[in-house]
């Protein structure tokens, strides 16, 4: 990062320090070019809020979510147990993820394998930081702009988190507009259940096109997302509708960071 260094758990531990929270970056957040921008935005926000956070860096490995959803319980559990060994080794107690899939897996599926942590999705942490005043947004790039939010399945239905991302968006003073299929009735972007890593089965339409069209019909200036897979699927959908010039797909963390000129 330009003006600060993101510490790893190894570095912090070597200095005898403990972070307030571990930032679980996730594979998409580490490797996907678009998702990396979201990771940076989130890191800037955490830094700006004065949070002492660390990442696992090269010690982080896939949570095993796509393996579990695809039916490969062996691979999932091997990933999980290796990660749990690392996390417990650092005595991690609190984690924030930039991805609802990592969030769901760490929060719900690690405890039975010996890994119990307080796990937050970044929408929840941002809401806390905004509510407590550790982050302040005053107007900014999205004031008065029409925004719609696409619920990630693994944040919404899977874990009943519907309000946190909306409360974060509200801070932007933008014009929030809801799709007909939202919250518990939200339509999947098409990437869950390991679909991200395969071609769709035969059908007459791709799911991300169906969802992108629904969002575009509201004529928003931005489609807000909170998941790197939704980001890919909806960006592709918007592009295939030739609307990428007019409508931006943005993660809520990026939007807050932009509004704060970070």
């Amino acid at each position: 990062m330009e003006n600060f260094k993101v510490p790893t758990m190894a570095e912090m531990t070597a200095r005898g320090e403990k972070p307030e929270i571990l930032f679980w970056v996730g594979c998409a957040g580490s490797f996907d070019d678009r998702a990396k921008k979201v990771t940076k935005a989130l890191a800037k926000l955490l830094h700006h809020a004065g949070m002492r956070f660390a990442v696992l860096g090269t010690e982080e490995s896939c949570t095993g979510d796509p393996a579990k959803r695809a039916g490969n319980e062996f691979l999932f559990q091997m990933q999980a147990m290796n990660n749990i060994t690392v996390l417990n080794g650092y005595e991690v107690t609190k984690i924030v993820t930039g991805c609802p899939h990592c969030f769901n897996t760490l929060k719900n599926e690690y405890p039975q394998l010996g890994g119990s942590y307080e796990v937050l999705h970044h929408s929840q942490l941002l809401q806390q930081l905004l509510d407590s005043g550790r982050l302040k947004v005053e107007g900014g790039a999205y004031r008065g702009k029409k925004v719609t939010f696409h619920d990630p399945c693994y944040l919404g239905r899977a874990n009943d988190v519907y309000e946190a991302p909306r409360r974060v968006i509200m801070r932007l003073d933008s014009l929030m507009t809801e799709m007909k299929r939202s919250k518990a009735n939200g339509l999947c972007c098409g990437a869950g259940g390991a679909q991200m890593f395969k071609e769709p089965e035969k059908g007459d339409k791709d799911i991300n096109m169906e969802r992108a069209e629904e969002a575009l019909a509201l004529k928003p200036e931005s489609i807000a997302v909170a998941c790197p897979f939704c980001m890919t699927m909806l960006s592709d959908g918007v592009k295939l509708n030739n609307m990428e010039g007019e409508v931006k797909v943005k993660d809520i963390a990026e939007m807050i960071a932009e509004a704060m000129d970070l």
């Binding site: 239905r157 259940g193 679909q195 089965e201």
Partner: peptide, 9 residues
């Protein structure tokens, strides 16, 4: 089975 996105809808 392989068409499912596990979205819980």
């Amino acid at each position: 089975l392989w068409a499912c996105t596990s979205c819980n809808a």
